[in-house]
């Protein structure tokens, strides 16, 4: 269980509060108007923004003081999820060892992850030689080898076309089925939330609301969400 315990986040004169829990193994969308603080919330959970007050806990561990790389979290950002000068296999391998000195066993893991996302035949390509969808698959392969219990997605597929994005979300869902990881996913598209997330956190008016059932929330949205959904 992820616990955001009386959390207050500030950035310049922007403030966001959160006091909620997310069940282990659940898939949660974070939805809300732009500028409401969806990415800010994710930045705090992943350790890039130290909270002003409150604590972040995963199971019984307090994460609040841990640096980003030491948290039980794998994260994909809006862009720059791959190093363009490293090969596909190296990019994935970084998820196992930041110094890339991989054992045979670990190299096999990288190959297996690439095979799982459908890129078995291109470990030596550079990201620039791949399509946008293939680049997303490489990033997902790295998330797979990281095998962290908590996965954060900050709209990494936003630049893809609708069909590709759907493919990616289905791939994410399939990977979650295999690993039982917990997913937190920022989205500005309610159809994404409906597709993959059984519950949704609404971020609006300076507050991250506790997760609710996605269907219920989207079918009868509160005023703040209604204004956003239009």
């Amino acid at each position: 269980m992820l616990t955001l315990d009386a959390l207050t986040l500030t950035q310049d004169d922007f403030q966001l509060t959160a006091d909620l829990t997310v069940a282990t193994g659940s898939r949660t969308a974070i939805i809300g108007p732009s500028g409401a603080g969806k990415s800010t919330l994710l930045a705090a959970i992943s350790g890039f923004l130290p909270p002003k007050h409150g604590h972040i806990r995963w199971q019984d561990t307090d994460l609040t003081q841990l640096p980003p790389g030491s948290r039980p979290i794998a994260m994909l950002f809006q862009d720059n999820n791959l190093f363009p000068h490293l090969t596909v296999a190296q990019n994935v391998g970084l998820g196992l060892r930041p110094n890339l000195r991989l054992t045979q066993n670990e190299q096999a893991k990288v190959a297996a992850a690439l095979a799982r996302v459908g890129l078995a035949d291109m470990p030596d390509r550079k990201p620039a030689q791949l399509s946008g969808g293939q680049q997303s698959r490489v990033a997902l392969a790295r998330v797979l080898v990281q095998s962290r219990p908590l996965i954060l997605l900050d709209e990494p597929f936003a630049a893809l076309g609708p069909a590709l994005k759907t493919d990616m979300l289905d791939l994410v869902a399939a990977l979650l089925d295999e690993t039982n990881a917990t997913l937190l996913m920022v989205s500005h598209d309610p159809t994404d939330a409906r597709r993959i997330a059984n519950q949704t956190i609404l971020v609006a008016d300076g507050k991250a609301h506790p997760p609710q059932d996605t269907q219920t929330l989207l079918d009868s949205p509160p005023d703040a969400l209604k204004a956003y959904l239009g």
Partner: peptide, 22 residues
């Protein structure tokens, strides 16, 4: 690449060798 390298724990000499120098 700071966020990506930080989230992957890519620091110190590995950061120099695998990210900055290239």
């Amino acid at each position: 690449y700071d966020r990506l390298s930080t989230s992957l724990n890519l620091t110190g000499l590995s950061w120099l060798r695998l990210l900055l120098i290239p």
